[in-house]
Amino acid sequence: MIRIIIAEDQKMLRGAFASLLKFEDDFEVVAEVPDGQQAWEAILEHKPDVCLLDIEMPHINGLELAENIRRAGLPCKIMMVTTFARPGYLQKAMDAQVEGYLLKDEPIDCLIGAIRRVMKGERVVSTDLAAALFMKEENPLSERETEMLRLTREGMTTGDISKALFLTRGTVRNYLSSAIQKLGAESRQRAVTIAEEKGWL
């Protein structure tokens, strides 16, 4: 019996996955949870064979959860199921050594087959995403520029960053301006989004 945990913040989709997987004689869904924190607790409690994780979840996202699972040395297989065909997300998932990365619009038969394949030791990536593995884009951002965007993502203003890093406001603005220019963005928030999508934050 393959014991599965489903972590998906959309209630309807989570229920649909669970209902369809329960039709399989060799599958048992041991927990269905709406966020990363509850997923982590369920993984520690149930010790599943497979974790189906959405990427964008509250509290702990799927990629962070995958890293936690690996750091803890837990033996479960990790499968990301996502709406996002973003090379950056895929690269981060590969870096976390996940066994599967599938798009949510794949037929359910693909998901069922993929679960069985990862249990046999294979790695499964949606065909639409496989090409992205060979198109890894070079990160143009310096370490400081990346740090500025990361702090901006956390909601810090130029003044906040200036105080936290003991830099002048002008220096902070210069770093942010350089990052925005390199990413071809029209604002610092857009630069954060672009860097996230490419897996540089």
Rank of each mutant, 00 (worst) to 15 (best):
A85V: 13
I115Y: 11
R116T: 06
A130C: 14
M119L: 07
G121D: 12
V118E: 04
S126Y: 06
K136C: 06
N61Q: 02
Y89V: 03
T157V: 08
G155P: 06
D128W: 06
M80N: 09
T83H: 15
M148W: 08
E64S: 06
N68P: 05
I60Q: 04
V81H: 10
I78W: 07
A93L: 09
R70E: 01
I108D: 11
T82S: 14
T83Q: 15
G155S: 02
A164D: 08
I112Y: 13
T146K: 04
T152M: 05
V81K: 09
T83I: 14
E138M: 05
A132V: 13
V98N: 13
P75D: 09
K104W: 13
T83S: 14
E64L: 00
P107A: 09
E99C: 11
T82H: 13
E147L: 05
D105K: 11
S162W: 04
T152D: 01
L141T: 00
Q91G: 13
T127H: 13
L111F: 10
R70Q: 01
P58N: 01
M156S: 03
V124I: 13
D109W: 04
L53W: 09
Y89T: 01
A131D: 12
S126Q: 08
E67Q: 11
A96T: 03
Y89S: 13
C76E: 03
Y101Q: 05
R153K: 14
E106T: 08
V118Q: 11
R144C: 05
Y101M: 10
A72C: 12
L111P: 04
G73P: 08
D105T: 12
R117Q: 14
V98M: 10
M119F: 12
P140K: 00
D128G: 14
M57H: 04
R71Y: 15
T158Q: 13
Y89D: 04
R150N: 06
F166S: 15
R70A: 07
G155R: 04
L165V: 02
K120L: 15
R153W: 05
G62M: 01
L53C: 10
M156L: 12
A93G: 10
I78S: 03
